[in-house]
Design a protein around this nucleic acid. Structure first.
Lengths: 238, 238
DNA sequence: CCAGAACCTGACCGATCGGTCAAAATTTTT
DNA sequence: AAAAATTTTGACCGATCGGTCAGGTTCTGG
């Protein structure tokens, strides 16, 4: 009920234990392929229906495997969900690396926003799974939020405070800047149906997201007292 | 399965039909009181667990009434949910009235942000129910999004376009400005556990929300090329 | 005071849920 | 080819779900 996300591990077979291959990458070729297929299906179903609304039966049908097979690989619905969530969280924190003291504030912010907006386009289902978890109390990732994420935010907030003290950007509480950044970028994934309805689109295309990125970029940068770096509307050359 | 939200009505008793009292306010004193109690409990349970995760049993226990009683008043779980959601949606669109052409842009924006932030503090559960509905595809309020909301946004976007053409604020796509406004304000309700974890709080106090309001206000207004109206940090005198 | 409307509720129903299991099929190792 | 490990699968289980219903109690207008 309170197992930290970081320590989670897939089901370990007798063979793996005997071989001493540790438990992380784990398993034969078939296992790796099927686990990946199941996780992909689970991401879609959990995103659409939430944790409780998603049924193992529905995930199984989407995978094209019998339900018992899912339990063979992941044991329980809870384990499957936590495994999926752990993968998503890893991706989530990595984007923070843009904030380093040496970098130009406008550049760092722009790169971060572009990364998160790109993520909203390429992995909207993952974003929804994450959003759903937080909205409903984040009971399955308590530790992650108050430990790993909090420390990371503390670090990066210090970087931004440094930029502010050096007069390189307007004063703003860095933590709240992060809240607004997360909200503004993820809304294009989590609330996509609302965005689509207002824009009169059936789905969000790459062009839509590019335009949205420009808008978010312009508003946030100006709000931080910055001007967009070099090539105004171009994509991240990285 | 596709009944529009606006036409929804509570269960109508034989008496009401005979009396011809129409179906909107409907019912005796007991009915009104119990329906309100049930809706309040439903809001909490739906917010915590989502639509599928919320059980009529759980709502009944929270209300202090037997489960069959809930079905007596609302018929089905779906009707109860849609009734609750309709109340929430009404509240949601009302805040738009701040955007009228005669008003000062900075004033209107500030008032709107303060309203939505206040809503995040006073009705976080309602916000979560709404968020949950959108994240999972808004299948139960399709009509609302593409009809009522879309028209409303279209109207208010025109107002903002007018301000921009008149040089009263920086150019920005008004619809995306709304997306960012909604996201930035509602994140303090929907993602409150994340905000709490990062800030190291157990719960968000009024002071926290006041501080957050100032941050959002400063960033957005500056981002729109505006300066805060008159009394800088004070609450809305309205 | 009485009749009818409104309200209350325990018991029950079929469906679906997550999860188990034994046995068969398949792959890998020796 | 034999043996061992891994993978597949249908059938099954108890629990819980939303919803129903008959019959009781309480309220209310005449």
């Amino acid at each position: 009920m309170s197992a930290p996300v970081e320590k989670m591990t897939r089901s370990v077979t007798a063979t793996q234990r005997r071989r001493g291959t540790a438990s992380r990458p784990a398993g034969g070729r078939t296992r790796r392929i099927n686990e990946a297929r199941i996780l992909a299906a689970a991401e879609a179903v959990f995103a659409e229906a939430g944790y409780t609304g998603a049924s193992m039966q529905a995930i199984a049908e989407r995978t094209g495997l019998p339900k018992a097979n899912l339990h063979y690989y992941f044991g329980t619905k809870e384990t499957l969900y936590r495994t999926l969530l752990a993968d998503i969280l890893d991706m989530w924190v990595d984007a923070f690396e843009h904030f380093v003291p040496e970098r130009d504030p406008a550049e760092a912010l722009a790169a971060y926003i572009r990364d998160k907006m790109r993520w909203s386009r390429t992995r909207p289902l993952a974003s929804k799974v994450f959003a759903n978890e937080i909205v409903h109390g984040a009971r399955r990732i308590e530790g992650y939020l108050s430990d790993k994420l909090r420390r990371r935010v503390e670090d990066k907030a210090a970087v931004i405070e440094g930029w502010i003290r050096a007069g390189r950007m307007a004063p703003i509480d860095p933590k709240h800047l992060f809240f607004i950044l997360w909200a503004a970028t993820q809304t294009y994934a989590d609330f996509d149906v609302q965005v689509c309805a207002v824009l009169g689109r059936a789905t969000l295309t790459e062009v839509d997201i590019d335009h949205a990125t420009e808008q978010v970029l312009a508003l946030i940068l100006r709000g931080c007292g910055l001007t967009p770096p070099s090539g105004a509307g171009r994509a991240d050359p990285e």
